[in-house]
């Protein structure tokens, strides 16, 4: 949903991107109208339009005159590529830095990751939660 984490049009764009990546919005599928977004998220229609248009400018969506907005062919692959780059910057690098800070050795980190991939233990999951919650509290 919409929160205070930055301009709303970017959040709208991100929400649509998420749905394309997850497959909820298939390629060549129709995207809800600007007004539907505005009503659903209770935001200004112009702002919703700006979010949608950002994706049109990037070629992720395209307009069919008089019909509506559709997901472009190849949109999912392009978004996936971009998200993978982001993944490294947003998650992997902070993960490594945090591990370093806590004195977790390379071997231990890899073992943790393997274990997590095999089905994370509740203890590990809890720890990551604590870190992220504390991070949020700082600016609230």
């Amino acid at each position: 949903m919409i929160d205070d984490s930055g301009p709303i049009f970017l959040q709208i764009a991100a929400l649509i991107e998420n749905d394309i990546v997850s497959g909820a919005l298939p390629e060549e599928g129709q995207v809800p109208s600007t007004n539907e977004f505005a009503q659903f998220y209770r935001i200004n229609p112009a702002t919703a339009a700006k979010g949608v248009n950002t994706l049109v400018d990037e070629g992720i969506l395209y307009k069919r005159r008089g019909i509506g907005m559709f997901v472009a062919a190849g949109a999912r692959d392009r978004l996936l590529g971009r998200r993978r780059d982001d993944f490294r910057a947003q998650f992997v690098q902070p993960l490594c830095m945090e591990a370093d800070k806590l004195g977790i050795s390379r071997g231990e980190l890899l073992a943790m990751l393997t274990a997590a991939l095999d089905g994370a233990g509740p203890e590990d999951a809890l720890n990551t939660d604590v870190v992220s919650t504390r991070g949020r509290q700082h600016h609230e």
């Binding site: 205070d4 984490s5 690098q93 830095m97 800070k101 991070g135 700082h138 600016h139």
Partner: peptide, 13 residues
Amino acid sequence: AAELGLTLGQVSL
């Protein structure tokens, strides 16, 4: 900021 270990957040209207 991320490399320095800082958390970024937005300021509400």
